[in-house]
Computed example of a mutant assay.
Amino acid sequence: MRRIGEFDQEKSALKFWSFLKGQGIDSTLEKDDDDQKWSIWVAEEDNINRSIEELKEFLADPEAKKFISIATGPMEKAKIEQPEESPKPKRQGFKEYKLREKWASRDRSSGTLTLALIITCAAVYLLSGLGSNTELVGKFFISEKLDGRLSEFVAGEIWRIFTPMFLHFSFFHILFNMWWLHDLGSQIEKKKGPKHFISFVLILAAVSNLTQFWMEGPAFGGMSGVVYGLFGYIWIKCKYDPGDGFFLDPFASILIFGFLIYGFAGGGAGVANWAHAGGLLVGLAWGYGSALRWNLGKS
């Protein structure tokens, strides 16, 4: 969710918010009790740029026909939700959301694509005999050969740069990765949209898998490279673009960074440390680029 602008007058805020709802753009209107301003928040990343352009048009000419024709539809149906402690009477017109309350009671259910990835990983884990069926596992490796040339990929098996993310070799391995995939992936999918999310996951998988392959060979698997990328993205966004609404527990940051350091320090035999590092760097860069573009007013 992203704040695209604010109004000094409630009437103008309601009018523009109503217009967005009429256009099918999922949005909310929030009143700032401190300075009596009204903020417009848009839920889906895919609608941000369009909403900003519409806002510019509205500010230039709020009486334009396009803003008047549907301005009364959603306003008459929606209702404001006031905090219980507020002595003010309820007023009709819009639904108000408090961000602190939203973050505190955030939706913890899995996104659709996130859940599909979790189910796929669980299915591969079970079908591969908990990672012990070498014949099946080999089909998911980035390569089954040790020539360092990605022979299968070059021959047309392009999917192999992605499929190692579905492999897991122990209960705790898959539990750790699926837990973080659910928590981090669902946030990104719901706030940025499914197309953004799956594209991001595939890029993270490709980069982390190729990094691990180039550094240590083809015998590895797991979703952790993707997880580290998702973590890096959200960690940066929380620091430099908190208005995007992501949440990350401070202890989680210590745990994930600590495990990365522990792995490179020699702990945890068989850990795909380079996949973790590759995914993390991509996530950090992607998150920083997103935050920078927004702070510069370019997105």
Rank of each mutant, 00 (worst) to 15 (best):
F67H: 02
T114H: 05
S109P: 13
F166W: 07
A104F: 01
A123G: 10
L136I: 10
F67N: 04
L59P: 10
K139V: 08
V154K: 00
A123S: 03
N177W: 08
I188Y: 08
M178Y: 04
S86A: 15
L167S: 00
G131R: 04
T163V: 04
L117A: 13
S143G: 06
A122Y: 00
I68V: 10
I174M: 03
A64H: 07
L136T: 10
L117Q: 01
A123E: 12
K66S: 10
R91C: 04
S128C: 05
R106F: 05
T120F: 01
Q187V: 09
E54I: 12
Q187R: 15
A64R: 10
K192T: 15
E157N: 00
F162R: 01
K98C: 02
G138A: 08
G148K: 11
M178W: 02
Y97R: 11
S110D: 08
E85P: 05
K102H: 03
E76F: 03
I80K: 09
D61S: 15
P74F: 10
R108Y: 08
K145I: 04
G131L: 03
M75F: 03
N177K: 04
V137P: 08
C121E: 04
P164D: 07
E81N: 14
F141S: 00
V154M: 05
F172V: 07
V137W: 02
A64D: 13
V124N: 00
E85D: 08
A60F: 03
K95I: 07
G193A: 15
N177R: 05
F166T: 02
I52S: 12
E96V: 06
G73L: 14
E144D: 00
K95G: 12
F169R: 02
S69L: 06
G129I: 08
F94G: 12
F176S: 14
I174F: 06
F141L: 01
K56Y: 10
F58W: 02
R106D: 01
A122Q: 11
R100W: 13
K195E: 01
K192R: 15
G131M: 03
V154T: 06
L113H: 09
I70D: 14
R108G: 13
E144F: 01
L99E: 06
L136Y: 09
D61M: 06
M75T: 13
L113C: 14
T163G: 12
P83H: 13
E76M: 10
T134W: 01
I70P: 05
K145W: 02
M178V: 11
F58G: 07
H196R: 07
T112A: 11
L59R: 01
D183C: 14
A116I: 11
P74M: 11
K88F: 02
C121S: 07
M178Q: 05
G193Q: 15
K192D: 00
K139Y: 06
N177V: 02
E144I: 03
L99V: 12
S69Y: 04
K191Y: 06
N49M: 14
D61N: 15
L117S: 05
V124P: 00
L146V: 11
A116S: 13
P62V: 11
I161D: 00
A122M: 12
K77T: 10
K145C: 06
E53T: 12
R91L: 13
T114Y: 05
N133F: 07
L184E: 09
L150R: 00
L184H: 13
G111P: 14
A104W: 06
E96L: 14
F94A: 10
P83F: 05
